[in-house]
């Protein structure tokens, strides 16, 4: 079959969802953010949630997330997205509210806000991008930077005596009775990305069913910050990040029912 006969609308199996804007993303080549944005956009479209959705963008590389999904957005102060989302879901309980936060935003400066929003069991979805580094400001150490990892503020590698230990904040979140579904995923391969999409879908369903906070960590790459090629960063992530941050569900429950598996 000739290519021109194949490339027809009736043969389409994969393409861009309408919820994604045509605006090219500002992310570096190979950045995981783009994949996660796409998964969210696909789900918002497939689940018919565009009119209900209010997204909260963080401070960090995803600060411009509001440019890329065709939904209403608020851009929060650094770390405060869960507080912003709390007010929104309390005042507009029929909407679907999610925060999209990086590791610096969520686990460092916003550690209090995320803990308390999750502990109150706000019916929001939290997407947590963990690439172990501050991307936007030039590759500094994050709370999730793993031991020995070189960043611009740990040029000799993270030394736990000096810098403390990499924080498994998702494990802490899973212990809070306000959370319903807590999972750790990745998007570095097609199967991982498809699995991540199923997890986000389940998380959204839980939120819509008012089961409590749903929290999806995506172990991600920052090839620019890590000073690697995109493909090399994926390999490094598999070899170094995922052993410390193993993938899988940490909790699958309903708010108030403590069935944390960790």
């Amino acid at each position: 079959m000739e290519l021109k006969d194949l490339i027809k609308p009736e043969n389409l199996v994969y393409g861009k969802t309408k919820i994604l804007e045509d605006e090219p993303m500002h992310y570096c080549p190979g950045c995981s953010h783009g994949v996660v944005h796409k998964l969210l956009a696909e789900l918002i479209g497939e689940m018919g949630l565009q009119e209900k959705t209010i997204g909260i963008a963080p401070v960090g590389c995803a600060v411009f997330a509001y440019k890329y999904l065709d939904i209403d957005w608020q851009e929060a102060a650094h770390g405060r997205a869960p507080a912003v989302a709390t007010a929104l879901i309390r005042l507009k309980p029929d909407n679907f509210v999610f925060t999209y936060q990086g590791d610096g935003d969520l686990a460092s400066i916003g550690a209090a806000e995320i803990m308390h929003a999750c502990n109150r069991g706000e019916n929001i979805l939290v997407i947590f991008i963990n690439n172990g580094i501050y991307g936007m400001t030039g590759g500094q150490m994050a709370p999730t930077t793993i031991e020995g990892m070189v960043t611009s503020t740990t040029p000799g590698g993270r030394n736990v005596d000096l810098n403390g230990y990499p924080m498994k904040i998702t494990n802490l979140i899973a212990q809070l009775p306000g959370t319903s579904y807590v999972t750790r995923q990745a998007v570095h391969t097609a199967s991982a990305a498809r699995k991540c999409k199923r997890s986000i879908k389940k998380a959204i369903e839980n939120v819509l069913d008012k089961k409590g906070t749903s929290f999806v960590e995506v172990v991600s790459t920052c090839n620019s910050g890590w000073k690697m090629t995109p493909v090399g960063a994926n390999t490094w992530m598999e070899d170094n990040m995922i052993p410390y941050y193993p993938l899988g569900d940490l909790k699958d429950s309903v708010k108030g029912e403590n069935s944390s598996e960790n």
Binding site: Y14, Y27, C31
Partner: peptide, 17 residues
Amino acid sequence: AHCGVVCPDTCITVYRA
């Protein structure tokens, strides 16, 4: 469509017959 799924910039469209 593995290529499309992992593409961060959504610049891949896939057809099949």
